[in-house]
Design a protein around this nucleic acid. Structure first.
Length: 990
DNA sequence: TGCCTCACG
DNA sequence: GACGTACGTGAGGCAC
């Protein structure tokens, strides 16, 4: 393997070998069959980042050592392993520093709580009776290379326990690697995946690509991908450098020619020496049985209970008395502070049986229930309908549930629930057949013809409504529902304005947002230990599903009464927690009051120009057909352009275009960034694909779908807002989603133009300017940012000016763009990778920007650290208004999951705070408009924007009210600014 | 049903 | 000296 350069690297500069580099004299060990070489410090870093924080009873951090011991135990148990040693770095400077003084120069200090763990792994190795090897002047990697060579020369084989990519060059027949965390063997395939070349060419690739963590320079502008391509083409580095003049791309050619020497130095740095003086005979690395008198007391001192148990069983108790750990034990640190739900509440008051439920078949029974409910002061209720769309669904039945005793008596052991069937019909038609008729006919009542006759012994709809109305509107009776907005919508179409209400879904969201979902089935299982009857159990599923009015009444009762019953019991658990967990204000002043506001927005809907959408759709279809023909022509065969799988095969397997990335599942990635790169490289096919993708998306997701969503009765589109969908407190919009209507491209804006105002009206758009950045300046308390906002300055320009030291006046737009990307990155929990991708720059440059940013705004870094610490300690973060966002993975054992949760933790108070602010504005707006005698209606919310429909003559006044209310929705240490626009359509209002 | 892709803030 | 990458959503089409 190692060719000419094995001897090249500055033989004279290396410390003089103390012994010959060949195999030293034999010790007392046996010959090697299989040698395991553990990269000790490499493993320690891996384990440190992979495991959640742990401490010894005396407070010493211990997670990495624990991981190390677990790994050692596994290898010692492995019968394949007959020899094992741990290799360590002896010091920080090595012969490589003489070749290149900046080698590993930019390496940051290890994390604070890892440092005390370094000496402990030496102790650990000793306790487990494993030899430790190190050599002054060389890195552990060189020693590993040398021992690997010796093992193979002796006729044995070797496994290097490490995932350090720098060691991959050593893989060859007889030598492989093992990822110590994933317990996965790494062979030539893993090398090919990582470097795109065979193991013997790894050093050449690394020499070209360089390595920022080790500060290996490489050739600027060449990364691993390009390097692999070049090496595979030219065979090796030296040939490539000599023939660099043949390279077509001018930039690449120039880079290689001017940096040839840098590449050669880099190669010396990355190439591992396998001829260093081995400090011990590898035969002496034979696996030895640990001494229980050494191992057990040591494990005891660390508090590794599972390992103590394992080795006590295998080795027997320690026989010699041992000195106890010298340090005084401290109480262990808590790492899992999330409070479970109170145990007393984990069980239902009484087991669920249908015997608790009854049917309300006549007026007398209903009167009795209404009277009881009124006396109780709190009633859970739920309505069943024949469709999901609350704007059109017909009422099929109502269920009620009561606690025994006056309201507030949540500890009552008795409860009752009942179902009032109203519009059940004889079985017959399926849902699909039914939907056909529903379009032309009005309510459920008129659909009595055909096979579905109304069943007997049900109260008439009018009677039921008339009797329920006083109860549902009684200000002295609290109506509890699960997602009660839905029920309010249904009843409002029958002239009933339900109130006051509580919503178990919202209570759960306010208390436990981010911990879990808030659907009834999940809540019942989690808090009541009860599996609810599923809708599909009573109504069937798929094509055979029937609407609820076709479900037999007895069966319907079991399902429906259970819903009310469960709702009431959930309420009994959640409501007391509200005050206890200090979430009353959030619930009472933000979430609950928002219900009727959203309801009226959903009912209002927005007018859509259907003919325009249809024209657009036809136009898109025509162009899609043309594009498809062109694409097939270029590709040389027909295939489904909408199939990423087929497309990937065409591009990368058949046409062999460069730059293919694989996704997690191994499929070719064909997303926009990949296609754009190919397009920039001059390939014609990706350009057409991108265009096709865009049009197909617009047609499929918007033009066609929106026309389908038009409500036959109102001629408008009615979305529905979900209050508990986003953990941060944002709303979500579905059926259709009106929060992602295109706006960024020209073609897309044509769709937005189809959202229009009623005759004599205009659309008014009011949106918060930079609300999340303002919140950041506020919560992190950054003086200069706050002042800039107070002055009304261009915040991205100010950031750029302060970071790069350039004046705002006459600023290069590119500089401002970078600052803008960084500002957004900060809000998202910045990473060099993300920023690099966003700006299309290299990661080192991105890292540099981030460092500059934090240098200028250290307060923001402090804020981020504080936020993460808080999240780790409490399991949630909070917005300035008190909303809690739980981060269930913040102390996860996976480093990836923790990093993810940390970024979310940084983002959540900002995104959630912005959501709180606009919700506060939305709650005040209806009354403010009314007070100003304005008819304007609020139609849509898109996170930081509100859209109103306004009569022409009221535009100026409405604009003023909207701005005043929105800007006054929160009192922060920075001003809130709202920008408005007016137009005949939504695009024009921007 | 899971995955990929892409529309929005 | 490793890992996976910006935060939060919903919807449509494909492949299984």
């Amino acid at each position: 393997m190692a060719k000419s350069k094995a001897s090249a690297p500055a033989a004279g500069t290396a410390p003089a070998p103390a012994q010959p580099a060949s195999k030293p004299k034999t010790g007392d060990g046996s010959p090697i069959r299989h040698l395991y070489l553990v990269d000790g410090s490499g493993y320690l870093f891996r384990a440190y980042h992979a495991l959640p924080p742990m401490t010894r009873p005396d407070g010493t951090p211990i997670n990495a050592v624990y991981g190390f011991c677990r790994m050692l135990a596994i290898h010692l148990d492995d019968p394949e392993v007959d020899h094992i040693a741990m290799i360590l770095d002896a010091g920080r400077t090595t012969f490589r520093n003489q070749i290149y003084d900046k080698y590993k120069a930019n390496r940051p200090e290890p994390p604070e709580d890892l440092i005390p763990q370094f000496p402990l792994i030496r102790e650990a190795a000793k306790a487990f009776n494993v030899t430790v090897c190190e050599l002054e002047g060389y890195e552990a990697d060189d020693l590993i290379a040398t021992y690997a060579r010796l093992a193979v020369e002796e006729g044995g084989s070797c496994t290097i326990v490490s995932s350090d990519k720098d060691l991959m060059q050593l893989i060859r027949p007889g030598v492989d690697m093992m990822d110590p965390i994933k317990q996965k063997k790494l062979g030539p395939e893993a090398v090919m995946e990582k470097f795109g070349v065979t193991p013997d060419k790894v050093v050449d690739v690394q020499a070209l690509a360089g390595d920022s963590t080790d500060n290996v320079p490489g050739v600027p502008g060449i990364g691993v991908k390009t390097a692999a391509q070049l090496i595979n083409e030219y065979g090796d580095l030296e040939t490539l450098l000599q023939r660099a003049g043949e390279i077509k791309q001018p930039k690449r050619r120039e880079a290689l020619q001017t940096n040839a020497e840098l590449a050669r130095i880099s190669k010396q740095l990355v190439h591992l020496r396998d001829d260093v003086p081995a400090p011990a005979d590898p035969d002496t690395f034979d696996k030895k049985r640990p001494d229980p008198n050494v191992l057990l007391p040591w494990l005891e001192q660390q508090g590794f209970k599972s390992l103590i148990a394992k080795y006590t069983k295998e080795l027997g108790e320690a026989t010699a008395p041992v000195a106890p750990a010298a340090t005084a034990p401290l109480p262990p640190k808590k790492t899992e502070p999330m409070k479970p739900a109170p145990a007393a509440h984990a069980k239902p008051n009484r087991p669920f049986t249908t015997a608790d439920y009854e049917l309300i078949r006549d007026e007398a029974a209903l009167d009795e229930w209404i009277s009881e409910a009124t006396k109780a002061g709190v009633v859970a209720f739920d309505c069943e309908t024949d469709a999901l769309d609350s704007n059109n669904a017909g009422l099929v039945g109502v269920s009620l549930a009561l606690l025994d005793g006056p309201w507030g008596n949540v500890n009552s052991t008795r409860r009752r629930a009942a179902y009032l069937p109203i519009s059940h019909r004889a079985p017959g038609g399926t849902k699909k057949a039914e939907a056909q008729g529903a379009l032309d006919l009005g309510g459920a009542d008129e659909r009595a013809d055909g096979d579905g006759k109304l069943l007997p012994d049900q109260l008439a709809l009018e009677t039921a409504i008339a009797k329920l109305k006083p109860l549902l509107e009684d200000p002295g009776v609290l109506k509890v529902g699960q997602n009660i907005k839905y029920d309010m919508c249904v009843f409002e179409r029958h002239g009933v304005r339900i109130g006051p209400v509580d919503d178990t879904m919202l209570l759960s969201f306010v208390l436990d947002g981010g911990k879990h979902g808030h659907g009834m089935d999940e809540l019942a299982e989690r808090y009541l230990d009860h599996k609810t009857i599923k809708f599909s159990d009573v109504a069937g599923s798929g094509a055979k599903q029937v609407s609820f009015d076709r479900v037999p009444i007895e069966r319907a009762m079991e399902y429906a009464a259970e819903d009310a019953d469960v709702t009431l019991q959930l309420w009994a658990q959640f409501k007391p927690r509200l005050a206890h967990e200090r979430m009353v204000t959030m619930y009472e002043t933000i979430e609950r009051p928002l219900i009727p506001v959203l309801l009226s927005m959903e009912q209002a809907g927005i007018k859509v120009d259907a003919p325009a959408l249809k024209r657009l759709s036809a136009d898109f279809e025509k162009r899609l057909g043309e594009l498809e023909r062109e694409i097939h022509k270029i590709a040389g065969r027909e295939f489904n352009v909408s199939s990423p799988k087929q497309l990937g095969e065409i591009l990368f397997d058949e046409q062999k275009l460069p730059g293919g990335k694989r996704s997690k599942t191994g499929a070719w990635s064909t997303d926009a960034s990949v296609l754009e790169e190919l397009a920039n490289a001059g390939h014609p096919l990706p350009v057409k694909i991108l265009e096709h993708r865009q049009l197909a998306k617009l047609k499929g997701t918007y033009t066609d779908a929106l026309v389908r969503e038009l409500d036959a009765k109102t001629g408008r589109v009615h979305t529905s807002y979900h209050m508990t969908g986003a953990a941060t407190g944002r709303l979500a919009s579905t059926d259709p989603n009106l929060q992602n209507i295109p706006v960024r491209t020209e073609e897309g804006r044509k769709i937005r133009e189809a959202f229009i105002a009623e005759k004599g009206h205009k659309l008014l758009s009011a949106d918060y300017s930079q609300i999340e950045l303002r919140l950041l300046a506020h919560v992190a308390d950054i003086g200069s940012l706050k002042e800039a906002f107070a002055r009304g300055d261009d915040i991205h320009a100010i950031t750029a000016s302060e970071m790069f030291g350039v004046p705002v006046k006459g600023m290069d737009p590119l500089v401002r763009r970078r600052a803008k990307a960084i500002n957004f990155g900060i809000i998202y929990g910045i990473s060099a990778f993300g920023l690099a991708a966003q700006l299309g720059i290299g990661q080192p440059e991105a890292r540099d920007y981030i460092a500059k940013y934090f240098q200028r705004y250290p307060g923001i870094r402090d804020y981020m650290e504080r936020t993460k610490d808080f999240a780790r300690k409490h399991g949630f973060v909070q917005t300035p208004f008190g909303r809690k966002i739980h981060l269930k993975f913040i102390n996860d054992k996976s480093q990836g999951m923790r990093a993810f949760a940390e970024r979310a933790a940084i983002n959540a108070p900002l995104q959630g705070g912005a959501a709180d602010i606009i919700k506060r504005a939305m709650i005040r707006l209806p009354q403010a408009l009314k007070d100003a005698h304005l008819e304007a209606r609020m139609l849509l919310q898109v996170h930081d924007e509100l859209l109103f429909e306004v009569a022409d003559q009221e535009i100026d006044k409405t604009k003023e009210v909207a701005r005043t209310v929105m800007e006054g929705a929160a009192k922060l240490s920075v001003p809130l600014v709202v920008e408005t626009g007016v137009g005949l359509n939504w695009a024009a209002a921007h």
